[in-house]
Amino acid sequence: MVHSGNAGGSLFAEGGAGTLRLLAYLAAAMILMVADHHGGHLERLRNAAGLLTGPIYRLAGTPARLARGVSGHLTAQQDMIRENSELREQLLLANARLDRLASVQVENLRLRQLLGGTRGLRLNVQLASLIDVDLDPFRHRILLDAGSRRGVSEGLAVIDADGVVGQVLAVTPMNSSVILVSDPSHAIPVQVVRTGLRAIAFGTGSVDRLEVPSIPLSADLRVGDVLETSGIGGRFPAGFKVGTIQHLHPDDTRLFVVADVQPAARLDRGGEVLLVWNAQSPDDKPMGPLPEGVIPENGVADPATPAAAGTPSDATPPPAVPDTEPSATEPSA
């Protein structure tokens, strides 16, 4: 079968007829364009077509909009999570700082109370911290972090913010052992603040009770009377509170009265104590470093003074106490 040129049904066939058709179509197109330009007849058609194609375009763009929305939501959520984490860390840090400030405030108050116990007295003081407790039920001892290297010597009185705690019993270069007033082998000279009556208070082995025996029946003594150190014996400076009389009862012989005393010091609590001794002259300086910012009553402390320069002159063992008012001694084996 022979193929000849274009098919008879072609729009622009070769030859004169095809050319005429092309020219006719071009002329018709030009006429339509001029008519649309002047009359705007196709504008309504284009608007109608736009109404039909608009939803199709929006539907086609929906996945992209959803993707952008999800991405923005996830980004915002991650930012919020990160910001929440940062705020939580800042809150924890702020709470930690507040707790630390509260602890410092309590410590400052406790130190002020400790030093307040020596206000108005011509005394030297040495601050020490408790580092150990003797749990032996028959011995009441505590261990302090101040020793001979800081000028501590045996016999120094130990107090807290409320009253007398005990006295230094043994000293090592770094630490010192303190016997509490509640120890059964301890005795301390006291006097009644109200009447001036002198006596000896003994430890009973209980941290909440001391005992003052051999009080004459004629003595003016009442429940609630306050006992303080009398200064006799040289171990304890006078004027420190020892305890309060809680109960009075006759002894076994019915010839004397025995007073049960509630210790003033917090013997089973607290973490800091003061070592105190009488100042021999206004120029005396305290042994070892004082707390920062603390000025003793007898002048300005000199932190640069080495402790090895020697113990104060009044740290030597005091003269023997009369048998009627013995000082504390270590129990014999």
Rank of each mutant, 00 (worst) to 15 (best):
R194W: 07
V190D: 01
L26G: 15
L274G: 00
L169A: 08
G293R: 01
P317M: 09
P137G: 05
P189R: 05
T311V: 13
G8M: 06
D268Y: 04
P286H: 08
D136N: 14
A27K: 09
P296G: 09
G54P: 01
L275S: 03
I31Q: 11
L32E: 10
L111Y: 11
T118G: 01
A201T: 00
G18N: 07
P317A: 10
Q90A: 11
P331M: 07
G205L: 06
A17E: 11
A94I: 08
H249I: 02
L51Y: 13
E86S: 12
L127D: 02
A219T: 10
I81R: 15
L66P: 01
A13G: 15
A309Y: 10
G116H: 08
S176K: 03
V242F: 00
L180V: 03
G116C: 03
R21Y: 01
G196P: 09
T172D: 07
R149L: 10
L274A: 00
R122P: 04
L91W: 06
A157I: 01
A28K: 09
Q167H: 06
A301T: 01
D145M: 07
L114F: 07
L227Q: 01
H41K: 07
G239D: 05
R58K: 11
P286Q: 06
G15A: 11
R82P: 04
A187P: 04
I81S: 14
P303H: 08
G234Q: 04
L197C: 06
Y25D: 15
E292Y: 12
T253W: 05
A301I: 00
L143C: 06
E211S: 15
A29M: 15
I131R: 10
Q246Y: 06
A64I: 07
P173S: 01
G151V: 02
S10L: 11
L169K: 04
Q90W: 04
